[in-house]
Amino acid sequence: MKLALKIDVDTLRGTLHGVPRLIEILQQHEANASFLFSMGPDHTGRAIRRALRPGFMKKVQRTSVVAHYGIKTLMYGTLLPGPDIGRRGADVMRAARDAGFETAIHCWDHVKWQDGAAKANVAWTEREMRSAHARYHETFGVEAQGMGAAGWQMNSHALRMTQRFGYRWASDCRGSHPFMPVWNGEVVLCPQLPTTLPTLDELIGTEDLTSDNVHHRLLRLTATQPKAHVFTLHAELEGLKLGDTLARLLTGWREQGYQLISLGQMRDALDLAKLPRHEMIRGAVPGRSGTLMLQGEEFLLPWKEAA
C-alpha cells in the first residue's frame, strides 16, 4: 500500500520556517514527500475578502488561523506589502530538493489563484501559470514535473496547460483514485492524483477532534480503506504547530504497512493506458468553505457503455 504526502507551501512563513521543520520530521520517519511551492507574492491578507463566504469565518475560528499563520502574514497584501516568496525562499526550496524530496508548483499568487481561478479567462490563467512555471525554472534550473492547484481550484484553461507544459502529474482535486481528467467531454492527457483524505484543518475543531487526537480519525480511515492514498498537508500547519500530530500520523501509517512516497513515485507506479477517465466537477467538502474541484463520475465512451 502506498500513501503519497503532498505538502502545500502557501506563504513565506511556511517556506522559511515550516519547510525545514518538515524536512526534519520526514527524514526522522524515513518518509518521502512532494513539496509544492507558491512561487510569487505572499498576499495572504487579501483572503479576508472570503469573510462573507458561507462557513469561512467559522473555519477561521475553529482552526486558529492567527496562531498558525501569524499576524504579520495575515497583513501581507493589505497593511504590509506582499513579499516575494520565490526570491526570499529560493534557498529553502532548493534545500528540500537537495534533501532528496520532489519539488513542484503550487501556484504563483496563492490567494489570487484560489479566489479567481474558477471563473478566470484563458489570458489570466496562462499569465498566472506561466509566471509560476518560469520562476520554478529560474529557481531549480529544470522544468517542473507537476503541480497541485491552490485551494483545489481549476478551470478548463488550466487543465489544458498541465498537458501543454508536459507535466507528468497533477493533483488539483479531491477524489478516490488516480485518473485521466475529462472536462465537458475533452480528455486532458495529464494524470490527476487526487487528495483522498481529509486535511487536518478540515477535521480539527469538529466533533471532539483536537490536535492531540485527530490522528486517530485519519488512521481509522486508512485502516478501513487500504488503498493508494494522497494526504495533503501544509507547511504552515504540520510544519509548525502541528508537527507532533504529523509525527504520530507517520508512525501510524508505517505501522499499518504504508509506504510513504512522493506524488512522482505514485505516478511512476501507474499504467497510464489503464487509468480510468473521470469528469472534473465542482462541489463541497466537509470542513472547507466554498466549492472546489472533485473527481466526478467515470467517463465512458459510447461503445464501452454498450459493451
Rank of each mutant, 00 (worst) to 15 (best):
T210V: 03
H133E: 13
A33Q: 09
G148T: 09
S176H: 14
V285D: 03
T63F: 14
A99N: 05
L221T: 11
A235Y: 08
P181L: 09
H133S: 10
A150F: 08
L292T: 13
D172K: 00
F35N: 04
V188I: 15
G45K: 07
S38V: 14
T199L: 05
S262Y: 12
I204W: 00
G290T: 01
W152Q: 08
A120W: 14
L292Y: 02
L240R: 15
R248H: 12
M93F: 15
E143W: 10
F37V: 12
R217V: 11
L12H: 05
A144D: 00
L3H: 12
I7S: 06
G141S: 03
D10C: 00
R267C: 11
Q114H: 15
L203S: 07
T232Q: 14
W152R: 07
G40A: 14
G45C: 08
R94A: 12
L197N: 06
G239H: 04
W303M: 09
V188W: 04
V187W: 02
T224V: 10
K59L: 07
A117W: 02
S156L: 02
F299T: 03
D115C: 12
R87I: 15
R97W: 10
L219P: 11
A4D: 11
T63H: 12
P276D: 08
R87Q: 14
E186D: 13
E126V: 08
